[in-house]
Write a protein that binds this DNA or RNA. Structure first.
Lengths: 249, 249
DNA sequence: TAGTGGTCTAGACCACCCG
DNA sequence: GGGTGGTCTAGACCACTAA
Protein backbone atom coordinates (compact mmCIF):
# COMPACT_ATOMS: atom_id res chain seq x y z
CA UNK A 1 0.00 0.00 0.00
CA UNK A 2 1.00 3.60 -0.04
CA UNK A 3 1.38 3.58 -3.77
CA UNK A 4 -2.28 2.82 -4.31
CA UNK A 5 -2.85 5.86 -6.48
CA UNK A 6 0.73 6.85 -7.19
CA UNK A 7 0.71 10.45 -5.93
CA UNK A 8 -2.85 10.60 -7.09
CA UNK A 9 -4.29 13.90 -6.07
CA UNK A 10 -2.94 17.31 -5.22
CA UNK A 11 -6.45 17.80 -3.87
CA UNK A 12 -6.80 21.12 -2.07
CA UNK A 13 -6.85 20.85 1.69
CA UNK A 14 -10.10 22.72 2.07
CA UNK A 15 -11.77 20.36 -0.36
CA UNK A 16 -10.66 17.35 1.60
CA UNK A 17 -11.68 19.07 4.82
CA UNK A 18 -15.12 19.72 3.43
CA UNK A 19 -15.54 16.05 2.63
CA UNK A 20 -14.33 14.91 6.04
CA UNK A 21 -16.48 17.37 7.96
CA UNK A 22 -19.47 16.67 5.74
CA UNK A 23 -19.24 12.98 6.51
CA UNK A 24 -18.85 13.74 10.19
CA UNK A 25 -22.02 15.81 10.05
CA UNK A 26 -23.93 12.83 8.70
CA UNK A 27 -22.67 10.37 11.25
CA UNK A 28 -21.80 12.21 14.46
CA UNK A 29 -24.07 15.25 14.60
CA UNK A 30 -27.75 16.00 14.78
CA UNK A 31 -29.65 18.98 13.38
CA UNK A 32 -29.18 22.09 15.49
CA UNK A 33 -26.10 20.80 17.25
CA UNK A 34 -23.29 23.34 17.59
CA UNK A 35 -19.84 22.56 16.24
CA UNK A 36 -16.58 23.42 18.00
CA UNK A 37 -15.46 26.95 17.21
CA UNK A 38 -13.31 27.67 14.18
CA UNK A 39 -10.05 28.08 16.07
CA UNK A 40 -10.45 24.73 17.76
CA UNK A 41 -11.44 22.98 14.56
CA UNK A 42 -8.52 24.46 12.65
CA UNK A 43 -6.10 23.31 15.33
CA UNK A 44 -7.69 19.88 15.42
CA UNK A 45 -7.21 19.43 11.67
CA UNK A 46 -3.81 21.07 11.68
CA UNK A 47 -4.68 23.83 9.22
CA UNK A 48 -4.87 27.60 9.29
CA UNK A 49 -8.16 29.10 10.29
CA UNK A 50 -8.63 30.61 6.83
CA UNK A 51 -8.41 27.17 5.26
CA UNK A 52 -10.89 25.72 7.71
CA UNK A 53 -13.21 28.62 6.98
CA UNK A 54 -13.06 27.89 3.27
CA UNK A 55 -14.43 24.42 3.94
CA UNK A 56 -17.15 25.71 6.27
CA UNK A 57 -18.16 28.33 3.71
CA UNK A 58 -18.82 25.66 1.11
CA UNK A 59 -20.80 23.55 3.55
CA UNK A 60 -22.86 26.59 4.44
CA UNK A 61 -23.40 27.30 0.73
CA UNK A 62 -24.76 23.79 0.36
CA UNK A 63 -27.14 24.36 3.24
CA UNK A 64 -25.46 21.91 5.59
CA UNK A 65 -24.23 24.43 8.15
CA UNK A 66 -25.47 27.66 9.59
CA UNK A 67 -23.07 30.21 11.03
CA UNK A 68 -23.93 33.25 13.09
CA UNK A 69 -21.48 35.80 14.35
CA UNK A 70 -21.23 35.90 18.11
CA UNK A 71 -23.07 32.61 18.39
CA UNK A 72 -21.38 29.75 16.59
CA UNK A 73 -21.74 27.18 13.85
CA UNK A 74 -24.67 24.80 13.93
CA UNK A 75 -25.87 21.90 11.82
CA UNK A 76 -28.57 23.18 9.48
CA UNK A 77 -31.90 21.41 8.96
CA UNK A 78 -32.71 20.16 5.45
CA UNK A 79 -33.68 22.89 3.05
CA UNK A 80 -37.32 23.83 3.01
CA UNK A 81 -39.10 23.51 -0.31
CA UNK A 82 -40.88 26.72 -1.24
CA UNK A 83 -43.38 26.61 -4.03
CA UNK A 84 -42.78 29.11 -6.80
CA UNK A 85 -44.72 27.30 -9.48
CA UNK A 86 -46.07 29.55 -12.14
CA UNK A 87 -49.35 27.76 -12.68
CA UNK A 88 -51.36 28.31 -9.55
CA UNK A 89 -50.41 31.92 -9.10
CA UNK A 90 -52.64 34.72 -10.16
CA UNK A 91 -51.74 38.30 -9.48
CA UNK A 92 -49.52 38.85 -6.48
CA UNK A 93 -51.37 39.52 -3.26
CA UNK A 94 -54.47 37.55 -4.25
CA UNK A 95 -55.11 34.82 -1.74
CA UNK A 96 -52.78 34.28 1.16
CA UNK A 97 -49.73 32.29 0.22
CA UNK A 98 -47.28 33.39 2.85
CA UNK A 99 -46.58 36.79 1.37
CA UNK A 100 -47.19 39.88 3.40
CA UNK A 101 -47.02 43.40 2.06
CA UNK A 102 -44.87 45.66 4.14
CA UNK A 103 -44.73 49.04 2.57
CA UNK A 104 -44.26 50.92 -0.63
CA UNK A 105 -40.84 52.34 -1.27
CA UNK A 106 -40.40 55.60 -3.14
CA UNK A 107 -37.33 54.51 -5.08
CA UNK A 108 -37.26 54.47 -8.83
CA UNK A 109 -36.88 51.19 -10.70
CA UNK A 110 -33.33 50.03 -11.44
CA UNK A 111 -32.24 50.03 -15.06
CA UNK A 112 -32.67 46.28 -15.53
CA UNK A 113 -36.27 46.42 -14.32
CA UNK A 114 -37.01 49.49 -16.39
CA UNK A 115 -35.89 47.54 -19.42
CA UNK A 116 -38.25 44.65 -18.63
CA UNK A 117 -41.14 47.05 -18.16
CA UNK A 118 -40.22 48.95 -21.31
CA UNK A 119 -40.52 52.12 -19.32
CA UNK A 120 -40.25 55.52 -20.83
CA UNK A 121 -37.47 57.47 -19.14
CA UNK A 122 -38.81 59.19 -16.05
CA UNK A 123 -42.09 57.26 -16.04
CA UNK A 124 -43.41 56.81 -12.52
CA UNK A 125 -43.39 53.36 -10.91
CA UNK A 126 -45.05 52.04 -7.78
CA UNK A 127 -42.76 49.89 -5.68
CA UNK A 128 -44.28 47.45 -3.21
CA UNK A 129 -42.13 45.66 -0.66
CA UNK A 130 -43.26 42.19 0.34
CA UNK A 131 -41.86 39.46 2.55
CA UNK A 132 -42.50 35.76 2.34
CA UNK A 133 -42.68 33.98 5.66
CA UNK A 134 -42.94 30.24 6.22
CA UNK A 135 -42.83 28.70 9.67
CA UNK A 136 -41.91 32.01 11.23
CA UNK A 137 -38.86 32.23 8.99
CA UNK A 138 -38.50 34.98 6.41
CA UNK A 139 -37.40 33.09 3.33
CA UNK A 140 -37.73 35.78 0.70
CA UNK A 141 -37.88 39.52 0.22
CA UNK A 142 -39.50 40.91 -2.89
CA UNK A 143 -39.79 44.20 -4.68
CA UNK A 144 -42.81 44.49 -6.93
CA UNK A 145 -42.61 47.16 -9.61
CA UNK A 146 -45.87 48.44 -11.07
CA UNK A 147 -45.76 51.19 -13.70
CA UNK A 148 -48.16 54.00 -12.92
CA UNK A 149 -49.77 53.35 -16.28
CA UNK A 150 -50.86 49.89 -15.19
CA UNK A 151 -52.93 51.19 -12.29
CA UNK A 152 -54.38 54.49 -13.52
CA UNK A 153 -56.83 54.75 -10.61
CA UNK A 154 -53.94 55.48 -8.28
CA UNK A 155 -52.25 58.12 -10.35
CA UNK A 156 -54.79 60.93 -10.64
CA UNK A 157 -55.84 61.20 -7.00
CA UNK A 158 -52.57 62.13 -5.44
CA UNK A 159 -52.73 60.41 -2.08
CA UNK A 160 -55.71 58.28 -1.10
CA UNK A 161 -53.24 56.68 1.29
CA UNK A 162 -49.89 58.05 2.34
CA UNK A 163 -47.06 56.72 0.24
CA UNK A 164 -44.79 54.19 1.92
CA UNK A 165 -47.46 52.53 4.02
CA UNK A 166 -48.85 49.01 4.01
CA UNK A 167 -52.24 50.50 3.24
CA UNK A 168 -51.00 52.06 0.05
CA UNK A 169 -49.20 48.84 -0.87
CA UNK A 170 -52.48 46.97 -0.59
CA UNK A 171 -54.07 49.61 -2.76
CA UNK A 172 -51.56 48.95 -5.51
CA UNK A 173 -52.17 45.21 -5.31
CA UNK A 174 -55.92 45.75 -5.35
CA UNK A 175 -55.79 47.85 -8.49
CA UNK A 176 -53.47 45.34 -10.10
CA UNK A 177 -55.98 42.59 -9.39
CA UNK A 178 -58.54 44.38 -11.52
CA UNK A 179 -56.54 43.76 -14.67
CA UNK A 180 -56.80 40.64 -16.80
CA UNK A 181 -53.72 38.49 -16.23
CA UNK A 182 -52.72 37.05 -19.58
CA UNK A 183 -49.61 35.22 -18.60
CA UNK A 184 -46.41 35.30 -16.65
CA UNK A 185 -42.93 33.93 -16.86
CA UNK A 186 -40.16 33.44 -14.44
CA UNK A 187 -36.41 33.19 -14.30
CA UNK A 188 -34.06 32.04 -11.56
CA UNK A 189 -30.46 33.06 -11.13
CA UNK A 190 -27.81 33.31 -8.47
CA UNK A 191 -27.12 36.64 -6.84
CA UNK A 192 -25.81 38.14 -3.67
CA UNK A 193 -28.04 39.90 -1.18
CA UNK A 194 -28.17 43.67 -1.18
CA UNK A 195 -27.86 45.30 2.21
CA UNK A 196 -31.61 45.81 2.69
CA UNK A 197 -32.56 42.33 1.57
CA UNK A 198 -29.85 40.83 3.74
CA UNK A 199 -31.30 42.56 6.77
CA UNK A 200 -34.79 41.18 6.13
CA UNK A 201 -33.42 37.70 5.57
CA UNK A 202 -31.26 37.83 8.69
CA UNK A 203 -28.10 37.34 6.68
CA UNK A 204 -24.98 39.38 6.05
CA UNK A 205 -24.80 41.56 2.94
CA UNK A 206 -23.49 39.58 0.01
CA UNK A 207 -25.00 36.30 1.18
CA UNK A 208 -25.91 34.03 -1.73
CA UNK A 209 -29.52 34.31 -2.81
CA UNK A 210 -31.71 32.88 -5.54
CA UNK A 211 -33.21 35.75 -7.50
CA UNK A 212 -36.62 34.97 -8.97
CA UNK A 213 -37.76 37.48 -11.55
CA UNK A 214 -41.43 37.31 -12.53
CA UNK A 215 -43.00 39.18 -15.38
CA UNK A 216 -46.77 39.69 -15.30
CA UNK A 217 -48.38 40.15 -18.70
CA UNK A 218 -51.63 41.98 -19.30
CA UNK A 219 -53.13 43.60 -22.34
CA UNK A 220 -50.18 42.58 -24.46
CA UNK A 221 -47.57 44.29 -22.34
CA UNK A 222 -45.60 43.77 -19.14
CA UNK A 223 -47.92 45.10 -16.45
CA UNK A 224 -45.63 44.42 -13.49
CA UNK A 225 -42.32 42.89 -12.56
CA UNK A 226 -41.44 41.21 -9.29
CA UNK A 227 -37.89 40.58 -8.15
CA UNK A 228 -37.81 38.18 -5.22
CA UNK A 229 -34.64 37.14 -3.45
CA UNK A 230 -34.72 33.80 -1.63
CA UNK A 231 -32.15 32.64 0.90
CA UNK A 232 -30.03 30.23 -1.10
CA UNK A 233 -28.74 28.44 1.96
CA UNK A 234 -32.10 27.42 3.38
CA UNK A 235 -34.42 27.30 0.38
CA UNK A 236 -35.16 24.86 -2.38
CA UNK A 237 -37.46 26.33 -5.01
CA UNK A 238 -40.08 23.88 -6.24
CA UNK A 239 -42.06 23.95 -9.46
CA UNK A 240 -45.01 21.68 -9.97
CA UNK A 241 -46.95 19.58 -7.55
CA UNK A 242 -44.15 18.16 -5.46
CA UNK A 243 -43.39 19.67 -2.13
CA UNK A 244 -41.77 16.52 -0.86
CA UNK A 245 -38.63 16.43 -2.95
CA UNK A 246 -35.66 16.09 -0.67
CA UNK A 247 -32.15 16.33 -2.04
CA UNK A 248 -29.20 16.19 0.30
CA UNK A 249 -25.53 16.25 -0.61
CA UNK B 1 -18.46 67.64 1.94
CA UNK B 2 -16.31 65.44 4.09
CA UNK B 3 -18.84 65.23 6.87
CA UNK B 4 -21.64 64.24 4.51
CA UNK B 5 -22.48 61.04 6.35
CA UNK B 6 -20.72 61.61 9.67
CA UNK B 7 -18.57 58.48 9.87
CA UNK B 8 -21.48 56.61 8.40
CA UNK B 9 -20.48 53.07 7.72
CA UNK B 10 -18.00 50.55 9.04
CA UNK B 11 -18.68 48.98 5.67
CA UNK B 12 -16.30 46.12 4.91
CA UNK B 13 -13.54 47.03 2.52
CA UNK B 14 -14.28 44.18 0.13
CA UNK B 15 -17.90 45.28 -0.07
CA UNK B 16 -16.92 48.80 -0.98
CA UNK B 17 -14.37 47.45 -3.44
CA UNK B 18 -17.02 45.32 -5.11
CA UNK B 19 -19.19 48.38 -5.61
CA UNK B 20 -16.38 50.48 -7.00
CA UNK B 21 -15.15 47.80 -9.37
CA UNK B 22 -18.70 46.94 -10.40
CA UNK B 23 -19.33 50.52 -11.40
CA UNK B 24 -16.04 50.64 -13.24
CA UNK B 25 -17.07 47.55 -15.19
CA UNK B 26 -20.21 49.31 -16.36
CA UNK B 27 -18.49 52.48 -17.42
CA UNK B 28 -14.92 51.72 -18.41
CA UNK B 29 -14.90 48.15 -19.67
CA UNK B 30 -16.43 46.12 -22.45
CA UNK B 31 -17.41 42.45 -22.49
CA UNK B 32 -14.40 40.21 -22.87
CA UNK B 33 -11.89 42.83 -21.85
CA UNK B 34 -9.21 41.63 -19.45
CA UNK B 35 -8.70 43.34 -16.11
CA UNK B 36 -5.31 44.08 -14.56
CA UNK B 37 -4.01 41.15 -12.56
CA UNK B 38 -4.92 40.71 -8.91
CA UNK B 39 -1.60 41.90 -7.51
CA UNK B 40 -1.75 45.12 -9.48
CA UNK B 41 -5.37 45.75 -8.59
CA UNK B 42 -4.73 45.13 -4.90
CA UNK B 43 -1.82 47.55 -4.92
CA UNK B 44 -3.84 50.13 -6.81
CA UNK B 45 -6.63 50.02 -4.21
CA UNK B 46 -4.22 49.78 -1.32
CA UNK B 47 -5.54 46.49 0.05
CA UNK B 48 -4.19 43.00 0.53
CA UNK B 49 -4.63 40.60 -2.31
CA UNK B 50 -6.97 38.42 -0.25
CA UNK B 51 -9.31 41.35 0.26
CA UNK B 52 -9.30 42.21 -3.41
CA UNK B 53 -10.02 38.57 -4.19
CA UNK B 54 -13.04 38.61 -1.90
CA UNK B 55 -14.52 41.39 -4.01
CA UNK B 56 -13.71 39.63 -7.28
CA UNK B 57 -15.25 36.41 -6.00
CA UNK B 58 -18.56 38.13 -5.39
CA UNK B 59 -18.53 39.76 -8.79
CA UNK B 60 -17.83 36.38 -10.35
CA UNK B 61 -20.68 34.86 -8.34
CA UNK B 62 -22.97 37.48 -9.80
CA UNK B 63 -21.83 36.62 -13.29
CA UNK B 64 -20.06 39.89 -13.91
CA UNK B 65 -16.53 38.52 -14.11
CA UNK B 66 -14.87 35.40 -15.35
CA UNK B 67 -11.57 34.23 -13.94
CA UNK B 68 -9.33 31.54 -15.34
CA UNK B 69 -6.11 30.32 -13.80
CA UNK B 70 -3.09 31.03 -15.93
CA UNK B 71 -5.08 33.41 -18.11
CA UNK B 72 -6.60 36.29 -16.23
CA UNK B 73 -9.82 38.00 -15.25
CA UNK B 74 -12.21 39.10 -17.97
CA UNK B 75 -15.51 40.92 -18.10
CA UNK B 76 -18.26 38.33 -18.48
CA UNK B 77 -21.07 38.60 -21.02
CA UNK B 78 -24.64 38.79 -19.68
CA UNK B 79 -25.97 35.50 -18.45
CA UNK B 80 -27.61 33.28 -21.04
CA UNK B 81 -31.19 32.30 -20.39
CA UNK B 82 -31.65 28.54 -20.59
CA UNK B 83 -35.15 27.19 -20.78
CA UNK B 84 -36.04 24.63 -18.16
CA UNK B 85 -39.79 25.07 -18.31
CA UNK B 86 -41.70 22.02 -17.27
CA UNK B 87 -44.51 22.33 -19.77
CA UNK B 88 -42.99 21.68 -23.15
CA UNK B 89 -40.79 18.83 -22.07
CA UNK B 90 -41.73 15.27 -22.57
CA UNK B 91 -39.40 12.45 -21.67
CA UNK B 92 -35.75 13.33 -21.75
CA UNK B 93 -34.01 12.62 -25.02
CA UNK B 94 -37.13 13.07 -27.15
CA UNK B 95 -36.57 15.80 -29.70
CA UNK B 96 -33.32 17.67 -29.78
CA UNK B 97 -33.17 20.44 -27.26
CA UNK B 98 -29.47 20.86 -26.78
CA UNK B 99 -28.96 17.74 -24.70
CA UNK B 100 -26.60 15.05 -25.87
CA UNK B 101 -26.24 11.66 -24.26
CA UNK B 102 -22.68 10.80 -23.50
CA UNK B 103 -22.57 7.48 -21.80
CA UNK B 104 -24.07 5.40 -19.08
CA UNK B 105 -22.20 5.23 -15.81
CA UNK B 106 -22.21 2.07 -13.73
CA UNK B 107 -22.45 3.83 -10.38
CA UNK B 108 -25.31 3.20 -8.03
CA UNK B 109 -27.73 5.98 -7.19
CA UNK B 110 -26.86 8.19 -4.23
CA UNK B 111 -29.05 7.93 -1.16
CA UNK B 112 -31.01 11.09 -1.89
CA UNK B 113 -31.95 9.86 -5.36
CA UNK B 114 -32.80 6.40 -4.09
CA UNK B 115 -35.25 8.05 -1.73
CA UNK B 116 -36.94 9.93 -4.55
CA UNK B 117 -37.23 6.78 -6.62
CA UNK B 118 -38.47 4.81 -3.61
CA UNK B 119 -35.92 2.18 -4.46
CA UNK B 120 -35.66 -1.12 -2.72
CA UNK B 121 -32.15 -1.55 -1.29
CA UNK B 122 -29.90 -3.04 -3.91
CA UNK B 123 -32.34 -2.49 -6.77
CA UNK B 124 -30.53 -1.91 -10.05
CA UNK B 125 -30.56 1.54 -11.64
CA UNK B 126 -29.53 2.71 -15.09
CA UNK B 127 -27.51 5.90 -15.02
CA UNK B 128 -27.31 8.04 -18.15
CA UNK B 129 -24.90 10.93 -18.42
CA UNK B 130 -26.01 13.86 -20.53
CA UNK B 131 -24.58 17.26 -21.32
CA UNK B 132 -26.45 20.36 -22.38
CA UNK B 133 -24.65 22.53 -24.89
CA UNK B 134 -25.74 25.93 -26.13
CA UNK B 135 -23.61 28.03 -28.47
CA UNK B 136 -20.74 25.63 -28.09
CA UNK B 137 -20.73 26.15 -24.35
CA UNK B 138 -21.50 23.30 -21.98
CA UNK B 139 -23.97 24.86 -19.59
CA UNK B 140 -25.17 21.81 -17.72
CA UNK B 141 -24.23 18.26 -16.82
CA UNK B 142 -26.95 15.81 -15.90
CA UNK B 143 -27.27 12.38 -14.41
CA UNK B 144 -30.47 10.58 -15.27
CA UNK B 145 -31.45 7.73 -12.98
CA UNK B 146 -33.81 5.09 -14.35
CA UNK B 147 -34.75 2.14 -12.15
CA UNK B 148 -34.40 -1.17 -13.96
CA UNK B 149 -38.05 -1.78 -13.20
CA UNK B 150 -39.05 1.17 -15.36
CA UNK B 151 -37.46 -0.25 -18.49
CA UNK B 152 -37.94 -4.04 -18.25
CA UNK B 153 -36.91 -4.62 -21.86
CA UNK B 154 -33.33 -3.83 -20.96
CA UNK B 155 -33.06 -6.00 -17.89
CA UNK B 156 -33.62 -9.56 -19.16
CA UNK B 157 -31.30 -9.49 -22.12
CA UNK B 158 -28.03 -8.88 -20.44
CA UNK B 159 -26.16 -6.76 -22.95
CA UNK B 160 -27.77 -5.70 -26.22
CA UNK B 161 -25.25 -2.90 -26.10
CA UNK B 162 -22.15 -2.68 -23.95
CA UNK B 163 -22.73 -0.81 -20.73
CA UNK B 164 -21.17 2.62 -20.50
CA UNK B 165 -21.60 3.54 -24.13
CA UNK B 166 -23.62 6.25 -25.82
CA UNK B 167 -25.47 3.50 -27.66
CA UNK B 168 -26.68 1.95 -24.46
CA UNK B 169 -27.60 5.38 -23.11
CA UNK B 170 -29.81 5.94 -26.13
CA UNK B 171 -31.35 2.54 -25.54
CA UNK B 172 -32.37 3.54 -22.05
CA UNK B 173 -33.90 6.77 -23.32
CA UNK B 174 -35.73 4.89 -26.07
CA UNK B 175 -37.30 2.44 -23.64
CA UNK B 176 -38.21 5.30 -21.33
CA UNK B 177 -39.99 7.01 -24.20
CA UNK B 178 -42.33 4.04 -24.51
CA UNK B 179 -43.91 4.77 -21.15
CA UNK B 180 -46.82 7.15 -20.61
CA UNK B 181 -45.54 10.31 -19.00
CA UNK B 182 -48.11 11.37 -16.43
CA UNK B 183 -46.39 14.37 -14.99
CA UNK B 184 -43.19 15.85 -13.73
CA UNK B 185 -42.03 18.33 -11.19
CA UNK B 186 -38.88 20.25 -10.66
CA UNK B 187 -36.88 21.90 -7.92
CA UNK B 188 -33.98 24.31 -8.03
CA UNK B 189 -31.37 24.79 -5.34
CA UNK B 190 -27.85 26.05 -4.92
CA UNK B 191 -25.00 23.57 -4.77
CA UNK B 192 -21.33 23.25 -5.46
CA UNK B 193 -19.95 21.29 -8.37
CA UNK B 194 -18.63 17.81 -7.78
CA UNK B 195 -15.27 17.06 -9.34
CA UNK B 196 -16.68 15.30 -12.41
CA UNK B 197 -19.34 17.91 -13.09
CA UNK B 198 -16.81 20.69 -12.62
CA UNK B 199 -14.64 19.13 -15.29
CA UNK B 200 -17.46 18.97 -17.82
CA UNK B 201 -18.46 22.55 -17.07
CA UNK B 202 -14.89 23.80 -17.32
CA UNK B 203 -14.95 25.06 -13.76
CA UNK B 204 -13.02 24.25 -10.61
CA UNK B 205 -14.50 21.75 -8.17
CA UNK B 206 -16.76 23.49 -5.70
CA UNK B 207 -17.87 26.13 -8.18
CA UNK B 208 -21.42 27.32 -7.50
CA UNK B 209 -24.06 25.53 -9.54
CA UNK B 210 -27.82 25.52 -9.79
CA UNK B 211 -29.06 22.00 -9.19
CA UNK B 212 -32.27 21.17 -11.03
CA UNK B 213 -33.92 17.99 -9.85
CA UNK B 214 -36.66 16.61 -12.09
CA UNK B 215 -38.99 13.80 -11.19
CA UNK B 216 -40.74 11.95 -14.04
CA UNK B 217 -43.99 10.31 -13.08
CA UNK B 218 -45.51 7.33 -14.85
CA UNK B 219 -48.02 4.71 -13.80
CA UNK B 220 -48.45 6.35 -10.44
CA UNK B 221 -44.83 6.15 -9.46
CA UNK B 222 -41.56 7.96 -10.01
CA UNK B 223 -40.22 6.40 -13.19
CA UNK B 224 -37.02 8.39 -13.40
CA UNK B 225 -35.11 11.19 -11.72
CA UNK B 226 -32.76 13.64 -13.37
CA UNK B 227 -30.25 15.74 -11.48
CA UNK B 228 -28.85 18.49 -13.67
CA UNK B 229 -26.21 20.96 -12.53
CA UNK B 230 -26.08 24.30 -14.33
CA UNK B 231 -23.22 26.78 -14.16
CA UNK B 232 -24.51 29.38 -11.74
CA UNK B 233 -22.15 32.06 -12.98
CA UNK B 234 -23.21 32.00 -16.61
CA UNK B 235 -26.78 30.69 -16.55
CA UNK B 236 -30.18 32.14 -15.85
CA UNK B 237 -32.86 29.47 -15.71
CA UNK B 238 -36.09 30.50 -17.41
CA UNK B 239 -39.59 29.12 -16.94
CA UNK B 240 -42.36 30.00 -19.31
CA UNK B 241 -42.28 31.64 -22.69
CA UNK B 242 -39.74 34.36 -22.06
CA UNK B 243 -36.25 33.88 -23.29
CA UNK B 244 -35.54 37.57 -23.38
CA UNK B 245 -35.52 38.37 -19.70
CA UNK B 246 -32.35 40.21 -18.88
CA UNK B 247 -31.47 41.04 -15.31
CA UNK B 248 -28.20 42.71 -14.52
CA UNK B 249 -27.28 43.96 -11.09
C1' DT C 1 -16.73 40.45 29.69
C1' DA C 2 -15.66 36.39 27.32
C1' DG C 3 -16.30 33.92 23.23
C1' DT C 4 -17.93 33.63 18.60
C1' DG C 5 -17.61 34.37 13.60
C1' DG C 6 -16.19 38.29 10.12
C1' DT C 7 -12.54 41.04 8.16
C1' DC C 8 -7.83 42.05 6.92
C1' DT C 9 -2.84 41.70 6.31
C1' DA C 10 1.71 40.38 4.13
C1' DG C 11 3.74 37.23 2.90
C1' DA C 12 4.64 32.19 0.46
C1' DC C 13 4.19 28.46 -2.74
C1' DC C 14 1.58 25.85 -6.30
C1' DA C 15 -1.02 24.68 -10.75
C1' DC C 16 -1.94 26.22 -14.99
C1' DC C 17 -1.57 28.67 -19.62
C1' DC C 18 0.88 30.70 -23.23
C1' DG C 19 4.55 32.49 -26.03
C1' DG D 1 10.00 30.91 -18.26
C1' DG D 2 7.19 34.36 -16.95
C1' DG D 3 2.68 35.64 -15.66
C1' DT D 4 -1.89 34.39 -14.08
C1' DG D 5 -5.22 32.94 -10.64
C1' DG D 6 -5.67 29.24 -6.68
C1' DT D 7 -4.23 27.72 -2.15
C1' DC D 8 -2.29 28.30 2.39
C1' DT D 9 -0.24 30.36 6.53
C1' DA D 10 0.03 32.82 11.13
C1' DG D 11 -0.97 36.20 12.87
C1' DA D 12 -4.22 40.71 14.16
C1' DC D 13 -8.27 43.39 15.09
C1' DC D 14 -13.35 44.16 14.79
C1' DA D 15 -18.53 43.32 15.38
C1' DC D 16 -21.74 40.85 17.46
C1' DT D 17 -24.06 37.84 21.10
C1' DA D 18 -25.02 36.11 25.40
C1' DA D 19 -24.21 35.26 30.21
Amino acid sequence: MGTTQLEAAPEPKYWHLKTVIGEALDSDFTVGEVLPNERDLAARFGVARATLRQALEQLELEGRLQRRRGVGTTVAPPRVGVDVSTTQHSWPGMGEDGWQSVDRAADAAPAAVARLLELAPGEQVHVVRRLRVTDGQTVAAELLYVPAGSVPALTDADAPDPVGTATHARGVLRELGRLALEGQDRSVELGSARADDAKELDRLPGAPVLVVTTRYLSAGRTAAVAVATYRADTCRLTFGDSGDLAMAS
